[in-house]
Design a protein around this nucleic acid. Structure first.
Lengths: 148, 148
DNA sequence: TGAAAGAGTTAGAATGACTCTAAACCTCAA
DNA sequence: TTGAGGTTTAGAGTCATTCTAACTCTTTCA
């Protein structure tokens, strides 16, 4: 979390923002960096706390604003589980989420195209889906500590 | 919404409650009846308003309690979409939900066993899923008015 | 009978995750 | 150098849900 955004990530941010007529600001850079540097589906509060290490004056409202902006221009996805607080995920590849009952951690589960299309095929005619959210809830016997 | 629960529905309620050591009460009967009589995924507030027609003194807290009880003993499912208020669904067959962007209505989408199992198959070893939630979000060109 | 226990219900207060508001801040362009 | 518009900020407001503590009802068993 100490080094800056890479050239590539910065221009990714830059490009997505300007596509919707918005600017790169220090706050947005900081929040984006937080999301990329630990991909563990943080809540707004977690993003806020991590981001303030690098930018102490940052306000919670701004974190909400930044994240909403990123969702709006397709840079990150929201992840909701029941009525818990919203989490954020910079993984844009099609994937499902698995929420561990015991730890509360959210893991990305890769979603192969054929499963995605078999899922789409269950929709009756007249139903046009723009987004699909798939979430599993259960337990893991994970041996490693990384949370994805 | 004027007639009582059928024998079959009442004994279904009865049995599910007693399985977890709980009792049938007039409030629980009323709330359960509301859920069965219009299967349109009502929110707590909607259940509350409908139920008070039959039982004016019923409190909102009790509606929350009843619904929580029903979820706990497997009589109904919760349906969440983003951070909107929780909705309730007495359809226990495996199904996905489709939320209409324009109307906010939630439709049940039947989930064939082979799709369900292909979905389960994407979980890596060590991930034991107890529940799966699938929700589509998009638009419908529905010709009929019923909300399911 | 009737006292105590325990489940269920109730109104209203409390919580917490956002969401809004209005003022301040910046940057760029005329 | 004025001001227009996007951005940030602190704090107030909202709203679904949860909690609390009193009350009611039924059951138990003394």
């Amino acid at each position: 979390m100490n080094q800056n955004l890479s050239e590539a990530d910065l221009s990714h941010l830059q490009e997505a923002l300007s596509r919707s007529g918005q600017k790169v600001t220090p706050q947005r850079e900081t929040v984006f960096k937080v999301l990329l540097s630990k991909r563990d589906h943080p809540s707004v509060d977690e993003v806020y706390n991590r981001a303030r290490e690098a930018m102490p004056g940052l306000s919670l409202a701004t974190v909400y604003n930044c994240l909403e902006t990123f969702v709006g221009c397709g840079l990150v996805r929201q992840v909701n589980h029941e009525r818990e607080s919203t989490r954020y995920c910079p993984n844009l590849a099609p994937h499902a989420h698995f929420r561990d009952k015991a730890t509360g951690r959210v893991h990305d589960i890769d979603l192969p195209p054929e499963v995605l299309s078999s899922l789409r095929s269950i929709l009756p005619p007249g139903f046009d889906s723009e987004t699909i959210e798939i979430s599993f809830h259960g337990r893991t016997q994970a041996k490693d500590g990384h949370a994805n």
